[in-house]
Amino acid sequence: MGGSVTDASRGWSGSRSAVRPGGAGAVARPEPANLVDVLERVLDKGIVIAGDIKVNLLDIELLTIKIRLLIASVDRAREMGIDWWEHDPELSGGGRRLAEENRQLRSRVAELESRGSGDGERGGAADEADSDDSDDEDPGDG
């Protein structure tokens, strides 16, 4: 009764996909990775460096935020009955953080959306990303 292994890769086979030697789940159904798993990594993780195309970064940030709101909405979680962390002393801090983060994200969405509509005609040459470096998280800051 093993946990199921979902092969997240397209061409990632060979030795590592045989991690479950003789196990019940053996190697997984070759189904594509769960979309939510993919988007929480591709949109929210991965190294962040400033590209040249600023508008694009802005869009992606907005998308990221919206999707995180979709995923991590405290209100929705509560609605769904998955509010257990609020009652857990260990985790209630996390719940508050989440609520706080969501408040911040919502105001950021509003900000980006208003800016986005103002910038709707941006067009033209690729913009330098030097005026807004908020996305520029260096991988090694130490």
Partner: peptide, 11 residues
């Protein structure tokens, strides 16, 4: 590899 976050585009 070090994966980039989606949407990193250069000229």
């Amino acid at each position: 590899v070090v994966p980039l976050r989606l949407g990193t585009v250069y000229r």
